[in-house]
Amino acid sequence: MGKTFSKPEALSDAHTHYCPGCTHGIAHRLVAEVIDELGIRGRTVGIAPVGCAVMAYNYFSCDFQEAAHGRAPAMATGMKRVRPDLMVFTYQGDGDLASIGMGEIIHAANRGEKFTTIFINNAIYGMTGGQMAPTTMPGQRATTAPMGRDVEKTGMPIRMCELLSSLATPGYVERQTLLKPKYINKAKKAIKKAFEYQEANKCFSFVELVSTCPTNWGMTPQDALKWAEETLLPYYPLGEFKSPE
């Protein structure tokens, strides 16, 4: 009987530091599978964010740069403009992308930079220990919102796909999630589409993945999946928001 399942070549042998139940591992694997399927590992450069995925450079087996907090889209711009033949992706969390890096992501998307962004939205700061993110839900507790997010003082959660798809520049913007196998298959398709648009030099491509953070949400992995489906998905609807076609 032949081998039916193996680790993608684009993933390294390193053990990740991610918490049990965290969805980063799935997201990494999907990106790696797409890199393998497109046969682009030798000309792919990833950019790690600041946050839980800061050490993503250890987990992929392609070239990697590590950015400052939120600046990955600017680095990707610099890289892609001087080496358009490289396949470039940023991998960013919600604190990184939607807070400190808001300026960089919007302008990169609006310039139509030909790279791909994988956006992990788990509605909280992970690495720094559970502080409120721009994506934190109303009433959701965080270490800097101990009574729950008060939208009177902090505003409503920012929906990045909706925001980016309002730009007039053509682009590919899709939101999927990693909460269940049926969603994971769709997420993989979206990631592949994003890389294919980049390969065709078509447009900026952006895939948001609604994810979990059992540790900082204070839940078991199973409860986290349930909470995300009941609370996050109604506010962060799945689907394709924008396509260059």
Partner: peptide
Amino acid sequence: EVAVGYMIFGAAAC
């Protein structure tokens, strides 16, 4: 200029 600094970084890193 913040973004420019990192465009420089990304290009230089290549």
